[in-house]
Amino acid sequence: MLLLTREDLEKVLAMREVIEAVEKAFLELYHEKAKVPLRTILEVEKHNGFLLYMPSYLESSEALAVKVVSLYPENPKKGIPSVLASILLNDPETGKPLAFMEGTYITAMRTGAASGVATKYLARKDAKTVGIIGAGVQARTQLWAVYEVRNIEKAYVYDINKEKSQNFADEMSKKFGVEIDVVESPKEVAENSDILIIATTARKPVLRGEWVKEGTHINSIGWVGKDARELDSETVKKSKLVVDSREGVLNESGDIIIPIKEGIIDETHIYAELSELVAGAKKGRDNDREITLFKSVGLAIEDAITAKLAYEKALKLGIGTHVEL
């Protein structure tokens, strides 16, 4: 079995390749070539955390994996990432374990890639500015993915921790050669951006619909349970809503569950799943004025396809550590 550390994964995974792989996974999902049961969520209430078990199998890509991921919003106060994960990749033909790998980096890469796919189909072609609310680990790969699918010229970032915002701006401006301004409020981010990235562990809305201008595309990836949200109801109501999974969002995402409970929207407000856009079954953006929203809770097929990509590239490049169990 091959062991792959985060350092190994950083050497083998490139965002453009991950976007292509994740788009392929969504196409398989549309054509019913994927098995992806609803993830099992174990809430550890005593320590304000969640543990998620996410198995999946992609028949055409021959990717079989299970991810175990934890979400502990208070972890950053202890110097630990809020999201931690590991992934086991198996041989679909025999069930033999092929690789065990650090999953936090893959989670960030595949989540960014899914938003990259959504941005490809939903953002305006002439979108040039990006706004980021929440400057954590996920925000970095989110910006990377958007950068790969649109010609980004400037970005704005806000985090409740201004030092995190500044570190993000310094790091990512060097990486992409794009000017990144640290701003004082989420409102300022929204009012200046063609594409919005909302990547928080907020329990109450950090984005209000009144701030969002015509033609904006929003990627919302934050999740801390069905009773919490990072988007207000007006944002959801005024947007063309695309999700990664109807079932997942309606069971898990407070961003959608809460406005439904309020009577602001109903389940029919979900325009499409991302797989429908990838397959061409439904159109993405209709015009340059509409507001589009991609709400993601994460699908295990994204992990499986990215883990297989990492494994195959690691074998080819001779990266990783082989162990006998």
Rank of each mutant, 00 (worst) to 15 (best):
S56G: 07
S56H: 09
S56C: 08
Y57G: 01
L58T: 07
E59W: 02
S60V: 10
S60T: 12
E62D: 14
A65D: 14
V66F: 01
V66Q: 00
V68F: 06
S70N: 13
S70P: 06
Y72N: 10
P73E: 12
N75P: 01
N75D: 10
P76A: 10
K77P: 04
K77L: 14
K78H: 05
G79L: 09
G79W: 07
I80E: 08
I80S: 04
A85G: 12
A85F: 01
A85V: 07
A85E: 06
I87C: 07
L88D: 04
L88I: 11
L89Q: 11
T94W: 02
T94G: 03
G95E: 01
G95Y: 00
K96P: 03
P97W: 08
P97N: 11
P97S: 08
P97I: 12
F100H: 05
M101Q: 06
M101D: 04
M101F: 09
E102G: 13
T104H: 04
Y105P: 05
I106V: 15
T107S: 13
T107Y: 03
R110N: 05
R110S: 04
R110T: 05
T111K: 10
G112V: 08
G116R: 00
V117W: 04
V117E: 08
A118V: 15
A118E: 15
K120P: 02
Y121T: 11
L122C: 07
A123M: 06
R124A: 10
K125I: 13
K125F: 07
D126Q: 05
A127H: 12
T129G: 03
I132M: 08
I132G: 04
I133E: 01
I133Y: 03
I133K: 05
A135V: 02
A135C: 03
A135Q: 02
A135H: 03
G136I: 13
V137L: 11
V137I: 14
T141I: 05
Q142N: 13
A145R: 01
V146K: 04
Y147K: 08
V149W: 01
R150W: 05
R150L: 11
R150T: 10
N151Q: 10
E153S: 12
E153K: 15
A155I: 06
Y158D: 09
D159P: 11
I160P: 14
N161Y: 08
N161P: 05
K162I: 15
E163K: 13
K164N: 12
K164Q: 08
F168P: 00
A169H: 02
A169K: 06
E171F: 02
